[in-house]
């Protein structure tokens, strides 16, 4: 079963398959999915946070797209975790 949350996201893919350039990116994806479920973060809230993080990250044509995406992903997750009261 595809996670309904993730089907709404435009995850980095090549020909439909998920692309991870390095293992930590898959880890970031898994961490995000589990944390969103536990903290009750909805798809819309997540998308907005991710979009903002992608904008903050900016675009570097030399940077790998998957690295850029998951860098923004973890930034968005970090901030959402803070606003959901799970900060240190």
């Amino acid at each position: 079963m595809t996670d309904p949350l993730l089907t709404t996201l435009d995850l980095p893919r090549a020909n439909g398959e998920l692309v991870f350039e390095e293992p930590w990116q898959a880890r970031a994806l898994g961490l995000g999915v589990v944390a969103m479920r536990s903290l009750g973060i909805g798809a819309v809230e997540w998308r907005d946070a991710l979009a903002a993080a992608i904008e903050r990250h900016g675009h570097d044509p030399d940077e790998d797209p998957a690295a850029a995406y998951y860098t923004a992903w973890i930034d968005a997750l970090d901030r959402l975790v803070a606003t959901h009261g799970a900060a240190p």
Partner: peptide
């Protein structure tokens, strides 16, 4: 040959966040 410019920083952040959330019992 793309350069994963901030990969190691993001990787560290991912690890730190996982450790934090595991410690708080939010994720396993």
């Amino acid at each position: 040959h793309h350069h994963p410019r901030s990969a190691s920083e993001a990787e560290l952040r991912t690890r730190a966040l996982e450790a934090l959330l595991v410690e708080k019992g939010i994720v396993a």
